[in-house]
Simulated scan of single mutants.
Amino acid sequence: FNIFENAFAKSVLMGNLDGRMFEEKTRSELSKDDEVIDDQGNVVEKKKKSLEDVLLDTWEDGLNADISELLSMLTKSNINFKTKENGWTPIMIMASIGVKETSSAMRQLKRLGANPSIVDNEGWNALHWAAFHGSVDGMVALVNGDEFNGMTAKGGNLHTVKDKEGKTPETIARSEGNIAVAEIIEKRVEKESESNETAAQDGLRKRK
């Protein structure tokens, strides 16, 4: 008989400082793969998380978020879901948290019909979110002509939208010191301006 195979004896002899004998976990330490057991030894059925729960958990985990659970829950019918308290949408979260899978995730959201023009309770659209949090990949996806093309009339002219304090995404980016994302907006504006000017000149030539 090996006394150290007995959890109670091992706990007493080794000096259990946190009161755990059976490798228990606290609620905050539980992962989605862990089983929860009641005091009778029965497995407790886990409550299924709502989309709002998963969305807020993803936001809270930020850069370290595992976005697979959120992406697996999104469909064409719920892609523009808004949280009850703040009006946050999946694309706002995805455009701002800065995970390494941002680019591919944003493409998936676009295929499902995500609308970056929707604003939250502060008047922020997805571009405001990316600007405030300095997410380069999120910003690129939103302004890229091959993706959301958000800085055109068809894409919602996201960069011109002012929040409830009268701030545009570029204003917010610069005030937060996120110069890289601010310059993405600035350069895209210049590019669109040049394209519009060229189109106008071509129109004049045709009329002549």
Results as ranks from 00 to 15, higher is better:
35 E>S: 08
204 L>K: 07
144 N>Q: 06
125 N>T: 02
103 S>R: 11
74 L>W: 01
90 P>R: 01
96 S>T: 13
19 G>T: 13
90 P>I: 00
153 A>P: 03
6 N>I: 13
154 K>C: 12
31 S>A: 15
124 W>T: 01
55 L>Y: 00
123 G>Q: 06
113 G>I: 06
29 E>D: 15
100 K>N: 09
80 N>A: 10
160 T>A: 14
197 E>D: 15
26 T>F: 12
23 E>P: 01
142 L>H: 04
134 G>Q: 05
166 G>N: 07
205 R>T: 06
53 D>C: 10
97 I>F: 06
179 I>Q: 12
51 L>P: 00
66 D>H: 06
114 A>M: 02
47 K>C: 07
190 E>G: 11
6 N>E: 15
158 L>T: 02
148 F>Y: 14
8 F>H: 15
78 N>C: 10
177 G>Y: 08
76 K>S: 12
158 L>Y: 03
111 R>G: 00
21 M>C: 12
148 F>K: 03
110 K>T: 06
5 E>Y: 11
32 K>L: 09
147 E>A: 14
192 E>D: 09
6 N>W: 09
165 E>Q: 14
22 F>G: 13
47 K>V: 15
103 S>K: 14
29 E>W: 07
69 E>M: 05
205 R>D: 10
91 I>C: 01
186 E>A: 15
10 K>V: 04
208 K>E: 07
201 Q>A: 10
155 G>H: 06
16 N>M: 05
139 M>N: 04
90 P>G: 00
75 T>C: 10
107 R>H: 09
34 D>C: 10
150 G>C: 07
104 S>G: 02
132 F>E: 08
142 L>W: 03
200 A>L: 13
93 I>Q: 02
116 P>L: 05
179 I>S: 08
13 L>H: 06
42 N>D: 15
37 I>L: 06
145 G>W: 05
75 T>A: 14
90 P>Y: 00
122 E>L: 13
190 E>R: 13
114 A>Y: 03
194 E>R: 03
198 T>A: 03
50 S>Q: 06
132 F>M: 07
143 V>R: 00
53 D>K: 02
196 N>K: 07
82 K>Y: 02
2 N>V: 09
149 N>Y: 04
143 V>I: 15
31 S>H: 04
207 R>I: 11
191 K>Y: 07
155 G>E: 13
177 G>K: 10
102 T>W: 13
168 T>F: 05
175 S>N: 09
145 G>T: 08
205 R>S: 11
25 K>W: 09
17 L>D: 10
5 E>M: 12
68 S>F: 06
12 V>Q: 10
192 E>R: 07
163 D>W: 08
49 K>N: 10
48 K>V: 14
203 G>Q: 08
176 E>T: 07
128 H>T: 02
129 W>C: 13
189 V>G: 08
20 R>W: 01
46 K>V: 14
191 K>L: 08
25 K>D: 15
145 G>L: 07
207 R>G: 03
4 F>R: 15
190 E>W: 03
200 A>D: 14
124 W>P: 00
160 T>V: 12
30 L>V: 09
197 E>P: 15
119 V>A: 02
168 T>A: 09
117 S>D: 03
115 N>K: 03
